[in-house]
C-alpha cells in the first residue's frame, strides 16, 4: 500500500514530531519503500498462530510490596531544563 503525504502528516501528529517540509517529503518516500519491504509478512497464512510479545513467555512477575526510599527531590529535578520549587515548569498547554 502506498504511503501518502497525508499519512505522514497524520503519523507525525500521533508521534508528536514537528517535521520540516523536507522531512515530510523524504519520509513519504522512505516509509513507502520500507513498508513495502516489511509488508511481505502478509504473504504467510498465520491463522491460528499465537502472537509472541516476549521471547521467554513470562507472565505477571510479582514482587513483594515493600516500600523503598524514593529518589530525592533534588535528584528528580537535577536534569530538568526548567523548574520552579518542586515542579517542572512548562509553557501554557495551549496558546
Amino acid at each position: 500500500m502506498p504511503i501518502s503525504r497525508d499519512d505522514v502528516l497524520h503519523v507525525a501528529r500521533l508521534a508528536r514530531l514537528a517535521l520540516t517540509e523536507d522531512e515530510v517529503e523524504r519520509l513519504t518516500h522512505e516509509l513507502a519503500d520500507i513498508v513495502e519491504a516489511v509488508g511481505i509478512v502478509a504473504e504467510l497464512d498465520l491463522e491460528g498462530v499465537p502472537p509472541t510479545s516476549h521471547p521467554r513467555g513470562l507472565v505477571n512477575v510479582m514482587d513483594d510490596d515493600e516500600p523503598r526510599p524514593p529518589l530525592p527531590l533534588e535528584d528528580v529535578l537535577a536534569n530538568a531544563p526548567d523548574h520552579e520549587g518542586n515542579l517542572f515548569r512548562v509553557p501554557a498547554w495551549r496558546q
Binding site: R16, L17, A18, N79, A80, D82, V90, P91, W93, R94
Partner: peptide, 23 residues
C-alpha cells in the same frame, strides 16, 4: 519530550515545545 530532562526547544505552548524538541 524536553520536560523533565534532556534538551528542550523553545516554543509558545506545551505542545509546540514537545514537538519541536523531538524534531
Amino acid at each position: 519530550d524536553g520536560i523533565r530532562y534532556g534538551a528542550r526547544a523553545e516554543g509558545s505552548s506545551y505542545q509546540e515545545v514537545v514537538e519541536r524538541t523531538r524534531d
